[in-house]
């Protein structure tokens, strides 16, 4: 019984990590087919570097993820502030919309975005991807930041108000520094969700701006080249560095 528990946890992690392990191993595998180990090689990384189509999609994916993370964090923090601090008409509608956004399956969100972009005449490509990614990340930022706002001493804010500080100043000088850990987690969450998304991106992408999952998806039928393994490995390294920086920031703040 004692051995069973760690064994169970281990097997769940083996399940979760086996695909990653296969990707990383094959990115260094001399053989193209990856069924057998044919010796260590950097060649897929070199080939990746020269594969402009794949590199472009990779850079585009990272660009969208980083921009999404910044804008969704900013917007989501302001929305959490509005819901927590202000009274306004349609406030309950606001919360319901965020709830719908969080609970709607990706496929439903994907078509709602496609329909609105076509209706508004927004061309499918960079902007449509960015707006869609920001929107589906919003509720996650809002609940993270809202949770922290709730545990907040309102007397400080009232004191600041009585001393004549403007709302904008209260936000910048008092609220923002205190909720920074939640804001940073919101950033990381948005970055992660944006990078992981396949379904919504497939609907709102355009021919002029290709991102990674779309590019790889188009390769699946004819066979995915091993450069993708190298790319996945690099993606992992970049993200792990990002989290290292952010957790350092959070720790320093606390």
């Amino acid at each position: 019984m004692k051995i069973f528990k760690p064994l169970f946890i281990l097997s769940v992690f083996v399940y979760l990590y086996l695909p990653m392990l296969v990707l990383i191993t094959n990115s260094f595998n001399q053989s193209k087919y990856g069924h057998k180990w044919a010796g260590f090689s950097w060649k897929w990384y070199e080939k990746l570097w020269n594969n402009t189509g794949l590199m472009d999609a990779f850079v585009n994916s990272l660009t969208i993820a980083v921009l999404t993370a910044f804008i969704a964090t900013l917007l989501g923090t302001l929305m959490a502030l509005a819901i927590h601090r202000y009274k306004f008409r349609l406030k309950s509608t606001t919360s319901s919309m965020l709830f719908i956004l969080m609970m709607s399956p990706d496929i439903v969100l994907a078509i709602t975005f496609l329909i609105i972009f076509i209706a508004l005449g927004i061309q499918l490509g960079f902007w449509s991807l960015l707006i869609a990614h920001i929107t589906f990340c919003l509720p996650f930022v809002v609940i993270t930041v809202y949770a922290q706002l709730k545990g907040f001493d309102n007397n400080i804010l009232e004191a600041a108000q009585d001393l004549g500080a403007s709302e904008g100043k209260i936000f910048r000088v008092i609220i923002l520094p205190m909720i920074l850990p939640a804001v940073l987690s919101g950033w990381l969450l948005s970055f992660t969700l944006s990078l992981d998304d396949v379904i919504i991106s497939s609907f709102v992408t355009g021919p002029g701006f290709e991102i990674l999952p779309i590019r790889v998806f188009s390769m699946v039928k004819v066979g995915v080249s091993p450069e993708v393994n190298a790319l996945a490995t690099i993606l992992l390294v970049i993200s792990l560095s990002a989290i290292a920086v952010i957790s350092l920031l959070i720790k320093r703040k606390q």
Binding site: L23, D196, V198, L212, P213, V216, F217
Partner: peptide, 9 residues
Amino acid sequence: VPFWTNSLI
């Protein structure tokens, strides 16, 4: 962690 390599991959 696995989320960071896109789910399609």
